[in-house]
């Protein structure tokens, strides 16, 4: 996996490069918007990490230019601005995800992972299958092996998200954003409770526990 980091804060970029390299990513760093755009235009990256505020060319301009040129490489936007309007601007420009600085490194890794795998799901699937867990998106039913699992609508969405990102760590913030569409950090462990309910429905009574807790990061659905 090749990642281009367009970030003018050299120290932050170095930390990112170090961390991502440790996780098996091949990183390239560009120190401003112009250099970043030129590098991105070569189109041999799987994910772009773009800082919003940069000299010469800002992040929004970089992403807009790439999208105009028909480049669909997944973009993760980084910004110190966490207001709703800022996030909307970034997503409108064509970014796929948005992360507010400062962030936990686990959060960055999880998001990059999610973005880098997004490309692989091409055709619109009607069923999702992870291990012996099977989800029918049309009938909205879930089976594990022979057992039918009865889920509330939100639990269904939660499981669907976990299945689409099977094998990846997903963070609580990601779940809150993508499943509930809330963009704030609750002070309580509200997501954990939903996960544990889902877990009791899909794992209880089975030998293999699919829904794993990833320490310091979040959760992962293993096949």
């Amino acid at each position: 996996m090749r990642i281009l980091i367009i970030e003018d804060d050299v120290e932050a970029a170095e930390a990112m490069v170090r961390g991502l390299s440790d996780n098996g990513y091949d990183c390239t760093h560009a120190a401003d918007g112009e250099l970043g755009l030129a590098a991105a235009q070569k189109r041999d990256f799987d994910v772009l990490i773009v800082d919003r505020m940069m000299p010469k060319l800002n992040g929004v301009q970089v992403v807009e230019t790439l999208r105009r040129e028909g480049d669909a490489t997944p973009v993760l936007f980084l910004s110190a601005m966490g207001e709703v309007g800022d996030r909307v601007d970034g997503l409108k420009a064509g970014a796929d995800d948005y992360l507010v600085k400062p962030y936990a490194f686990a959060e960055l890794i999880a998001r990059v992972e999610a973005l880098s795998r997004r490309r692989e799901t091409g055709a619109v699937a009607t069923t999702l299958k992870v291990g012996d867990l099977e989800m029918n998106l049309i009938a909205r039913t879930v089976h594990r092996g022979e057992t039918e699992i009865d889920l509330q609508p939100r639990e269904f969405q939660l499981l669907e998200f976990m299945m689409r990102h099977a094998g990846q760590s997903v963070t609580r913030t990601m779940l809150l954003e993508k499943v509930w569409e809330y963009h704030f950090d609750p002070q309580t462990n509200v997501i954990d409770v939903h996960i544990s309910r889902l877990r009791s429905k899909i794992d209880k009574g089975f030998e293999r526990q699919m829904l794993q807790t990833v320490r310091g990061a979040g959760y992962r659905l293993d096949p």
Partner: peptide, 24 residues
């Protein structure tokens, strides 16, 4: 900023759905 018109009951229902398991 960006105020819109919407149903407050719906908004509260979504929140209730998020928090109900935590209370339990």
């Amino acid at each position: 900023p960006d105020q819109t018109h919407f149903d407050p009951g719906q908004l509260a229902a979504d929140i209730a759905e998020l928090y109900e398991p935590l209370c339990e």
